[in-house]
Design a protein around this nucleic acid. Structure first.
Length: 527
RNA sequence: GCUCCGGUAGUAUAGUCCGGUCAAGUAUAACGGCCUCUCGAGCCGUGGACCCGGGUUCAAAUCCCGGCCGGAGCACCA
């Protein structure tokens, strides 16, 4: 039967199917749907999907965290679930949290449109971790290890237990009490969770769960020197995920072995490990997405601040007019795959442009202004420039060009346009009139009025350029993505712009208004 | 080195679980054209990919084996 069908040509097969089962071939409507995230594993088993984003507040957030935040939040929304923000600030020494970042992170999330349903801070929860540590110890599922780290490592590589492992629960509890009360110094004792010593991955064998930190020397920014025993990641996150009812852990694949480690603890406590999705790393070509590099650059004064346009922090993206919607769409499109992704700025810009273009008003900005002198202007002329080419209803800017003296008018045009101007060529000042170039020098272009009609410029294939009448300019600084400043002049209608507004400077690019006082300061987004 | 994970056009992604409708869809970038009083947007079109080698099968991007390449983890960090 199969052979029979295969012996027929494709067309033949098609014809037969069409005859007998016409509905099978009906083309599915090319639905222009938004791309959706793939379904969450086993979502139906949970009455309420709960996800979390758990940053260490030791730095501001950047694009590298976007995947964790947006996937977690989107999935929570998709299943009408709950999205938790949990600050993992349990290392007052090496990755010391900084007070200002707690709030900065909340602001970033709010800006991204990721509403937090519940918030927790791990440094408030030490007694909880202590309680479970004690339970594990008492039930023989953990032990206080006094071995020097180096010695322990050698043993564990050979799957050999250390002498601390088999001490009785009573002795463990006694050691634990000493740990809490200061009987051991930093690095002298650590609580380990028992696992399979023969596990193929040595990294999961009897992993450390709590350690001592000398908080007199390294006080925690929130709780100071109140505690000296601090949980490590797997202890704190593992306990919290269960206690907070997290159903789906969405985090980077660097945590893959942490799941294996935590599963041992879950078994000891009789808990079930949540579903876990481990996505790959997200990189942007040319952007530093490493906290340590960002922090270092700030400290050395290379970057002006957390929102320096060279950085890929959310603060910087916000300043540049990259919209949260664009970031969100990009991350959703990329999805939760385990393969690493390397995006380019162009990808982000394309998403952003699509959102910005229909809604941003247009203005003229002349970069590196050069004076244009036009002779023979017959009379005062006015130009009406639409704020948006596709949306006449949003209004227009209007400038009247009155010849001074006899018949001469002056304008500012961009150096880039002046540079390519050649004597004898026609140029059209957009929406105004056509001129013929007479002469070009470094800071003056002289020209002569020829006609008003746009059609003539088209016929002559004249270049269209933007312009600002002399006297209608405001000084404007454009901060570029490389932090350089492009100085120029903006048309006077820009005086009305408010900070936060995103506009397009025609033939230049999209920019976000940052300050608009004596001088206009804008940040460049992209073309 | 050990333990995992991955590899579809320049980039990203769909398809892989459950082999056939995939001579591989989409977005973006590139190129060409149309339209437009922006070098923007829009519209139309072109080129471009299943890492390699074997195997199983009537049929492999999809299953199996081997190789190559890439990534992650191997902290008293998160």
């Amino acid at each position: 039967m199969v052979n029979e069908v295969n012996s027929l040509s494709i067309d033949e097969q098609k014809r037969i199917v069409e005859e007998k089962w016409p509905e099978a071939l009906k083309k599915e409507k090319a639905a222009e749907e938004e791309k959706h995230l793939p379904p969450l594993p086993s979502a139906e088993r949970y009455s309420l999907v709960i996800t979390r984003f758990s940053p260490n507040p030791d730095c501001v957030l950047h694009l590298g965290s976007a995947r964790a935040i947006i996937l977690s939040h989107e999935y929570a929304r998709m299943y009408k679930g709950k999205f938790i923000l949990r600050f993992e600030d349990t290392d007052p020494k090496l990755k010391k949290p900084v007070l200002e970042f707690y709030e900065a992170i909340r602001e970033d999330l709010a800006w991204l449109g990721c509403k937090v349903d519940e918030e927790y801070i791990q440094s408030d929860r030490l007694p909880i971790y202590y309680k479970y540590a004690e339970q594990l110890l008492r039930e023989g599922n953990a032990y206080v290890c006094l071995c020097p780290p180096e010695q322990f490592r050698k043993r564990i590589l050979k799957s050999a237990p250390c002498s601390c492992r088999d001490l009785s629960p009573e002795e463990q509890i006694e050691r634990w009490r000493l740990m809490l009360e200061g009987g051991y110094g930093e690095g002298e004792a650590v609580v380990r969770v028992k696992t399979d010593l023969t596990h193929p991955n040595p990294a999961v064998r009897d992993w450390p769960a709590l350690r001592i930190i000398d908080t007199e020397k390294y006080p925690h920014p929130r709780v100071g020197s109140k505690y000296r025993v601090w949980p490590l990641y797997n202890m704190a996150a593992g306990i919290d995920d269960h206690l907070m009812g997290v159903t789906h852990v969405i985090r980077g694949k660097e945590h893959l072995t942490n799941q294996v480690r935590q599963e041992y603890m879950y078994r000891h406590l009789g808990w079930t490990y949540p579903e876990a999705i481990h996505y790959g790393r997200l990189k942007i070509t040319g952007a530093f997405l490493s906290k340590s590099k960002i922090v270092q650059g700030i400290r050395e004064g290379i970057y002006k601040g957390w929102d320096d346009p060279r950085l890929a922090t959310f603060a910087a993206l916000r300043k540049r007019g990259i919209t949260p919607a664009a970031i969100k769409k990009m991350i959703v499109d990329v999805g939760p795959k385990t393969a690493d992704v390397t995006l380019s700025w162009e990808n982000l810009y394309a998403y952003n442009r699509k959102l910005l273009d229909p809604q941003c008003n247009r203005y003229f900005f002349v970069s590196e202004p050069v004076k244009l002198k036009v002779k023979n202007v017959p009379s005062a002329l006015s130009a009406k420039l639409p704020l948006h080419p596709e949306k006449p209803e949003v209004g227009q800017r209007e400038y009247t060009v009155a010849p001074k003296g006899e018949d001469t008018a002056f304008f500012w045009i961009a150096k880039k346009d002046a540079d390519v101007a050649k004597a004898g060529e026609m140029l059209r000042l957009m929406e105004l009139f056509n001129v013929i170039i007479k002469s070009v020098s470094t800071n003056l272009v002289e020209a002569q009025f020829v006609s008003i009609a746009y059609e003539e410029a088209r016929k002559a294939k004249a270049k269209l350029i933007h312009w600002i009448p002399e006297g209608e300019e405001v000084s404007c600084q454009v901060v570029m993505p490389d932090a350089s400043v492009n100085k120029g002049l903006a048309e006077s209608a820009c005086k009305k712009l408010k900070p936060e507004e995103i506009i397009q400077f025609e033939r230049f690019g999209f920019v976000r208004v940052d300050k608009n006082n004596a001088e206009l300061v804008v940040y460049y987004a992209h073309k």
